[in-house]
Design a protein around this nucleic acid. Structure first.
Lengths: 153, 153
DNA sequence: CGTGAAAGGGTTCACTC
DNA sequence: GAGTGAACCCTTTCACG
């Protein structure tokens, strides 16, 4: 699962910075022939180390001007309870991130909304309706300081 | 800043799902000729609607097995205080996300670490050392349920 | 915005070391 | 595993309608 050597690490770093780099340029950058580079990249993709390639689109351009951080507690920690909650939360398209957490709350969510009215709808129709929820705590981002797509680049 | 019409929206949706789609394929998908599609994509990139393209790499493959959510409060809310904190936090490569928040804490951070020992180092050398910090509260992700790169795709 | 053609570049083989 | 060379395909980018 981990990269094998320094060249794989260099490949990963490069595609994290520029997902549209051509294989030819990538090969030159990491000091490999195009064919060798293509083989390695293929392995990294097929083995799941590289999940995919995406464009970053400014959320504001999509009219998503609001980010909420939502802490949620459930009525219990049984596997069945967690599974039912997780299956349901995955269906909400506004939930960008969801982690099962240690600490006071069971889950933390990052939710995108177009505006406050949109968030109220999401809160009412989605979040409050999730199974086994006993406590919800929403706070809102006033400003984005950092949003890096990847670690260590 | 917002997209102009349905075709731009379709272009954005496509590149969010596949950042490596070729212009020819993209044109076909949105029902445009390659030249017209290329012109639109160029505008979307140059105007900043599309921020860039990147590969998603499994954090585990990079040996980042740990995600911490860190709530931080500062000693005040003066602009100078916030600015100094924000300039400093941007220098920490392990901080993936940082928002200025409403609510109990001033900032919320998403921090990647290789393991608990690595996190202790980050906490000690970076987070605790950030200017004006008076309270830090770390909790840890036990499991990732959702991690979408983009909203509404 | 669409068409068409030209030009250039990239990918992908089989083969070799 | 990596490099070479060549064929093939595709993409991009014009000028023009």
């Amino acid at each position: 699962m981990g990269q094998r050597d320094a060249i794989d690490a260099a490949i990963l770093k490069a595609v994290q910075q520029n997902g549209r780099i051509s294989n030819a340029d990538l090969a030159e950058r990491v000091g490999l022939s195009p064919s060798a580079c293509s083989r390695r990249l293929d392995i990294l993709e097929k083995s799941g180390v590289i999940n995919g390639y995406y464009a970053r689109v400014s959320p504001k351009a999509l009219d998503y001007k609001m980010i909420a951080i939502v802490h949620i507690s459930l009525s219990g920690q049984f596997a069945k309870t967690l599974n039912e909650f997780e299956s349901a939360v995955k269906l909400c398209p506004n939930v960008l991130v969801c982690y099962l957490m240690s600490g006071e709350y069971d889950y933390i969510l990052r939710v995108a909304a177009k505006d406050l009215e949109d968030y109220e709808r999401i809160h009412r129709d989605w979040l409050s309706a999730l199974p086994h929820v006993v406590k919800i705590n929403s706070s809102f981002a006033l400003r984005e300081i950092i949003d890096r797509p990847n670690v260590g680049v």
